[in-house]
């Protein structure tokens, strides 16, 4: 069947099978491989994209169902696709600033789900963030830094500036000592 959709600003028209999953159409058909697949039961959320203004798990949508839609993937979220970090979406920035990712496989879905969450609830509590992301699994971070990143992005999107990040721009001193640590000391 013939389907036409606008993906990350580009209109594509292609022939697909009725059974072609949107996620496979994006990845194999259009080469938009930034959106990964993590499960087959719409449980993990790695494949989350935005269809016509709503977050959706692209593994549980047929490409034919998305005919006529406008889709944004992680690759179309920032202002430019050349990696220029000054064009990143505030949510993308916040995930880096708060170490909200490790292996990064859940990250595209987590970021897309976050963008949707903050659109609907610009001032979420920590609990609301956790529940708002209940459809996205991460196996690396334990979620704590993701929650921090989301709260920070929310603050920035509200125009209140990001929350203080975890990283240190300036060196502290020349030793390996860090402020949070307390030297217990080995025996002499």
């Amino acid at each position: 069947m013939r389907v036409r959709m606008k993906v990350d600003g580009v209109t594509y028209e292609d022939e697909v099978q009725p059974r072609t999953l949107l996620t496979h159409h994006l990845r194999d058909g259009l080469g938009r491989v930034g959106t990964p697949i993590g499960c087959d039961t719409s449980s993990c959320g790695a494949c989350t994209v935005d269809i016509d203004g709503e977050s959706v798990k692209s593994c549980s949508v047929l490409a034919v169902q998305a005919d006529g839609s406008t889709i944004t993937t992680i690759q179309g979220l920032s202002g430019a696709e050349n990696g220029d970090s000054s064009t990143w979406h505030p949510v993308q920035k916040a995930f880096q600033e708060h170490h909200g990712l490790q292996c990064g496989y859940c990250t595209p879905g987590m970021i897309m789900a976050t963008v949707d969450l903050l659109k609907r609830n610009p001032s979420p509590s920590e609990d609301e963030v956790r529940h708002g992301l209940e459809g996205n699994l991460c196996r690396c971070t334990g979620y704590q830094n993701i929650v921090k990143a989301v709260l920070s992005a929310a603050s920035e999107l509200r125009g209140e500036g990001p929350l203080p990040g975890s990283f240190q721009d300036a060196p502290e001193n020349d030793t390996a000592q860090t402020p949070a640590a307390e030297t217990a000391g080995a025996p002499a």
Binding site: S42, G45, T48, E54, S55, V56, K57, S60, V61, A113, D116, L117, G132, E134, G135, N136
Partner: peptide, 9 residues
């Protein structure tokens, strides 16, 4: 029911 993305569909 389920999660926000599933509730969108």
């Amino acid at each position: 029911v389920a999660d926000p993305a599933v509730r969108h569909r």
